[in-house]
């Protein structure tokens, strides 16, 4: 009940603050920009250079999903950092909601948005091979990735500037989504341990049970470790 009340309050707060509303719609902007690039730049490139990007569409979709969920994670991370600086999080932690409730509330809110944007992104960049199950799975993994990025920033950064440094560094994780393009064995091996690689793998081989299992395990493991680390540090 407390979660629901806070969730409603968060929604109210976001609707009242035009900046937060716009920020939460920013992923839509990214989807639109990429769709426009697909519609106009791809034929232009093909005509000018003969470069056909079609075989790389799974990577483009993976990139869009990761950027969207990463962006939501970064926004959530900074929201929590600002709340920590303003002592709002400490205030909420002593309410019946508690520390874990506060964290869950913030992360679940962003994760739900990530699921919605996941569906929208996949619908806009339709890839014929993706079943409904795969679409749901990718959207849920996007939600996990959002929570992972949000937690990495919130628990890793002591202040806003370090948060920005983290955000900048975390963008490099997207490289792992393209790891198999580079055909570097060490990079591919390293990528196995990071969520972006498995998002691409699921898009490329949606029927592979191994890819699905690994994707779930890696995402859950990252989130689990981060929550454990956060709880231990705070206590």
């Amino acid at each position: 009940m407390i979660h629901l009340t806070l969730f409603k309050n968060d929604l109210k707060q976001i609707v009242r603050d035009p900046i937060m509303t716009l920020l939460l719609f920013a992923p839509l902007l990214l989807i639109v920009v990429f769709k426009l690039l697909e519609l106009f730049l791809v034929p232009y490139l093909a005509a000018k250079t003969g470069f056909d990007i079609t075989p790389y569409f799974p990577y483009v979709l993976s990139f869009v999903l990761l950027m969207n969920s990463g962006m939501l994670g970064i926004v959530t991370g900074f929201m929590m950092l600002d709340e920590r600086d303003g002592n709002i999080s400490q205030l909420l932690e002593v309410t019946p909601l508690g520390r874990n409730g506060y964290l869950a509330n913030r992360l679940i809110f962003a994760s739900i948005l990530a699921i919605i944007y996941g569906f929208i992104g996949i619908a806009v960049f339709k890839l014929p091979d993706l079943s409904f199950f795969t679409i749901v799975l990718l959207s849920v993994l996007s939600a996990f990735y959002t929570a992972i990025i949000g937690l990495l920033i919130f628990s890793g950064a002591e202040d806003k500037v370090k948060g920005l440094t983290f955000a900048k560094g975390l963008n490099t994780l997207v490289l792992f989504a393209f790891a198999d393009l580079f055909a570097l064995p060490w990079l591919t091996f390293l990528s196995w341990f990071f969520p972006p690689y498995w998002v691409t793998m699921i898009i490329k081989t949606p029927d592979s049970l191994i890819a699905i299992c690994f994707a779930i395990v890696i995402h859950v493991a990252w989130l689990g470790i981060l929550i454990f680390r956060y709880s231990r540090r705070e206590s």
Binding site: I19, L23, L29, F78, D82, G163, L164
Partner: peptide, 11 residues
């Protein structure tokens, strides 16, 4: 007042 506000204003 917040980093999120700043990031949005840069767009």
């Amino acid at each position: 007042n917040t980093v999120n506000q700043y990031m949005l204003k840069t767009i």
